[in-house]
């Protein structure tokens, strides 16, 4: 990775700034010269079509993947996130799209994995109490925290992954589709939680395909398209603008569908 990219252009207030990040997987360039700033006390929504490179960008920030080129600054200082623990040490917590939980361990063990209390004589009682508190804050519907994660439903697992990310008082939280599998109440709780941590001054990145969720919480919407930056929007940007930035055309499946739904259907006059 080259550190030569120009970090001087980054905003001095930003908590994390990425400059001209590129990532190649063999012949595929998943990301091309992407810039992103995360400010304290702000929720950034990262949107884009399937395969746009959102998860790849999050994995680079989490230290799971290394960029092919580009630079990352944390608190204004250049950093190299060469492995996940480097990112965790900086206080970057991540909920991955694939959740990354250990199915053979129970809920408590998963929440505390890598950060167990009293390493030489695990404090199971304190960990269980803390786990219940975190899960309670998220309105989790989990009957027992002593069951292996393999026994949980998709949404319950997602809640566990989110609780895990909140555990160590991070400074930045990256949420890759955190509400995709959640019920109505749990989604609302997660959105509340996101706003709460934002108000505590954390930087939050949320990836979602659900525009309702995005508009509800985001302070800024960053669009990725085919691995490149494709515009930054305020949360009240029109749907049309957002969709065309995401899909890259005025004439796209979403707008065509919107038009055809708006017009009365000539072929099927029986239905409204």
């Amino acid at each position: 990775m080259t550190q030569l990219a120009d970090l001087s252009a980054s905003d001095p207030r930003s908590l994390v700034s990425l400059r001209t990040i590129s990532k190649n997987f063999g012949a595929v360039s998943a990301l091309t010269e992407v810039d992103l700033d995360i400010f304290p006390g702000e929720i950034v929504a990262l949107v884009g079509d399937n395969g746009a490179g959102k998860s790849t960008l999050v994995k680079i920030l989490a230290g799971v993947l290394q960029p092919s080129s580009g630079a990352i600054a944390f608190d204004g200082a250049p950093v190299t996130l060469s492995n996940p623990s480097a990112a965790l040490r900086l206080g970057i917590a991540t909920v991955f799209q694939d959740l990354a939980l250990c199915e053979n361990l129970d809920v408590v063990a998963n929440i505390f994995l890598g950060r167990e209390l009293s390493p030489l004589q695990l404090d199971e009682v304190a960990m269980e109490v803390r786990a219940w508190t975190l899960l309670g804050e998220l309105s989790a519907r989990i009957p027992s925290v002593r069951e292996p994660v393999a026994a949980l439903s998709g949404g319950q697992r997602q809640t566990v992954a989110i609780a895990r990310s909140l555990l160590m008082n991070p400074r930045v939280i990256l949420l890759d589709e955190p509400t995709a599998a959640l019920g109505v109440a749990q989604t609302a709780e997660v959105l509340n939680m996101i706003e709460r941590v934002r108000d505590r001054g954390l930087g939050v990145v949320i990836i979602s395909h659900n525009m309702e969720v995005v508009r509800a919480v985001a302070d800024r919407i960053v669009v990725l398209r085919l691995g490149r930056n494709n515009g930054v929007f305020p949360p009240d940007a029109s749907n049309h603008d957002l969709v065309s930035a995401i899909t890259g055309a005025d004439d796209n499946a979403v707008s065509r569908r919107a038009r055809s739904v708006a017009q009365p259907r000539s072929l099927n006059p029986g239905r409204h």
Binding site: V64, P84, R89, A100, L101, C102, L105, L113, P119, L122
Partner: peptide, 22 residues
């Protein structure tokens, strides 16, 4: 111990253990 927990985690899901900073 934390070591034992990490052993179990690595055996269960190596990538998840790595992402947990182990």
């Amino acid at each position: 111990t934390q070591w034992g927990r990490s052993m179990t985690a690595v055996g269960g899901n190596r990538e998840a253990a790595r992402r947990a900073g182990i």
